[in-house]
Design a protein around this nucleic acid. Sequence first.
DNA 1: CTTACTGTACCGTCTGGACGGTAATGTCAA
DNA 2: TTGACATTACCGTCCAGACGGTACAGTAAG
Lengths: 187, 187
Amino acid sequence: MSGNRASSREKILAAAAELADCVGPGNLSLDAVAQRAGVSKGGLLYNFPSKAKLMQALVEDYISKFDTDLAAKSAGQHGGPVSRLAAYIELSAEECAQVHPSASGVVAALAEDPDFLKPIRNYKRRLLDSLKAESKDPAKLIVAFLMIEGLRSMKLFDMDILHEDERSMALSYLLAEAAASQDPEAN
Amino acid sequence: MSGNRASSREKILAAAAELADCVGPGNLSLDAVAQRAGVSKGGLLYNFPSKAKLMQALVEDYISKFDTDLAAKSAGQHGGPVSRLAAYIELSAEECAQVHPSASGVVAALAEDPDFLKPIRNYKRRLLDSLKAESKDPAKLIVAFLMIEGLRSMKLFDMDILHEDERSMALSYLLAEAAASQDPEAN
DNA sequence: CTTACTGTACCGTCTGGACGGTAATGTCAA
DNA sequence: TTGACATTACCGTCCAGACGGTACAGTAAG
């Protein structure tokens, strides 16, 4: 019955993200995380030797999950393979539709030290570059990318002011763009 | 020679915003703010009876400055009066061009407690509604609004990954939309 | 014997904020 | 004009509590 290293790690990461969401990103304490995760503080520090490492892991975990999902969607997990832009748009839309912002841990990392977000910055830049390479209309790509960024930040920072019809309007615009960029005849 | 209440308030607010920018939003302490502002901690607490009030003031100050600038630009401070959408786009662009993110205090408030951002959410919703009332093409308004939101969040959270040509591409797209929404013949 | 913890005790540091003081600036009656 | 009192705007000190992190003894499973 004793510990499974991997499952403890995940429980702790999940607990940290949830807590950050409900107590506020700046008030994330190790004691609280340990309690929420159902491990002792000693156990927490056994898995993550410092708070900084926890934060780093939170961010890396978020990125790797997003990247895995993106690859799966792009490869055509349900339905045939789609363009990466379409996959990116759909995935972002799904993420924004979630009730629990899955990236609240990321915000906690920001509160602790903005540098923790550097991996995300790098990931985003690489993603944008790879999308650019596949796109025929860079201007429209930038428009779509910025819109998604806007949508995501609103959700993440609990600033979502859009009505349902406004959001669906934005989404249908994005998906139409993605389809156009994918299908040579649509232009 | 003794204190001017108003100037102390402003010095403190400015110091808090600057500090939040350079020490990280979560590490904003009253002592540090007091030192930076050139007042004692007691003096700080006299002007803002608690940290929460400071944060609130930071956010309100940011909103009111933005709103004042928007009104001035819209009324045609330099050049004739422009549409509010055009003014909004230009103002946001200027804000994003700044080296010092003028809203870093807002991020500090977020770190303390996400609820401090509610006034901003309300302001944004009202702004969007008023722009909508003036717009002939709500879909394009939403696109523009989301793009600006994306641009702003990137700047604010130090996630600005766009190259110069990409940013200017986005800006020229936005300004073209603003002009089109203003000038009935351009459609 | 090792891995993966639990649990407790503890330390040094930092933080918000309460508090008592005080100099300068009004206010106002005599 | 002056003295008495009130208010404003701040200073400097102090403190209880929270926090990150360490140390270490114990334990249950494989």
